[in-house]
């Protein structure tokens, strides 16, 4: 593994075109180990597209993505996850018919060690590994106080709980970098407040880097150490929350619009 000074994520000249539309261009960032970074910008700015590039849902048209110093070129979404990037989705993607616990166990999948044959024959390793996975899943669900919902079908959960479950599932894959796409969307202020605390707790306890897209400025300014602002697919500002709040370009492109 690369030394601590290597950023967990580094992008160089990253970009993608959809037909004639350049959705992302010249996207250069560095995310340090253990950092909480915000990715903000107006609707349609290209934020989700950036996550899709990082996780290989889309193939970049140009540029480079380095994960812990290793080029991820040619990796599939599956490989990128195994290499250490986990994510949630803006439009929630749970395994609807599986239970809450099973959803988390899918996150744990690559850390559960028994073969299909051992599973069919119910050999000792099946029992011990499943028991371990069960305990680990409940432990992870406890971060959001969701372990009492373990047996519920994921598709039947309220919206906020679905968003939290997605975070738990992503966390279960043991990432180095967690990408959260609008984690507070649809949550009320008290839920958002609690989410903020939990995101910080996850970073502290797991020591991972978190990059989050969010429109809720209170949350972004409250927990992000650094913020990247994009507009029309290009970075228009980088800096600490204080710097971003006083940046004229940002105010014009983004915050200005909000103020009216």
């Amino acid at each position: 593994m690369a030394d601590k000074k290597t950023p967990v994520l580094e992008t160089k000249h990253l970009g993608i075109d959809f037909g004639g539309l350049t959705a992302v261009d010249e996207f250069n960032i560095e995310v340090e180990h253990g950092e909480i970074k915000g990715l903000i910008g107006p609707n349609g700015a290209g934020k989700t597209t950036i996550f899709n590039l990082l996780t290989k849902v889309y193939k970049p048209s140009r540029g480079m993505i380095l994960l812990d110093g290793t080029d991820t070129q040619g990796m599939t979404p599956e490989k990128v996850n195994r290499a250490g990037i986990a994510r949630t989705f803006q439009n929630i993607r749970l395994f609807d018919k599986l239970t809450v616990e099973e959803n988390v166990k899918i996150g744990l999948h690559n850390h559960i060690n028994y073969s299909s044959i051992e599973g069919v024959l119910r050999l000792p390793r099946y029992w011990s590994e499943e028991k371990k996975a069960h305990e680990k899943a409940l432990e992870l669900l406890d971060i959001f106080e969701m372990s009492d919902m373990a047996g519920d079908v994921a598709g039947s959960l309220p919206y906020g709980a679905q968003r939290r479950l997605e975070i738990v599932r992503a966390l279960a894959t043991e990432p180095k970098l967690l990408l959260l796409d609008e984690p507070a969307a649809g949550m009320n202020p008290s839920e958002t407040e609690e989410l903020m605390n939990n995101i910080r707790k996850i970073r502290d306890e797991f020591g991972i880097a978190i990059m989050l897209i969010e429109h809720d400025m209170k949350l972004v300014m409250g927990i992000c150490e650094n913020i990247v602002v994009v507009n029309f697919g290009k970075i228009i500002a980088k800096g600490t929350p204080a710097e971003i709040q006083s940046n004229d370009d940002v105010i014009e492109a983004y915050l200005g619009k909000r103020k009216g």
Partner: peptide, 20 residues
């Protein structure tokens, strides 16, 4: 574990890939 993975892929292929 295998069956769980098969069902997860059925429910949401993109999320299954993103989960490794």
């Amino acid at each position: 574990r295998t069956g769980r993975a098969i069902k997860a892929i059925r429910d949401n292929r993109i999320a299954a890939e993103a989960s490794g």
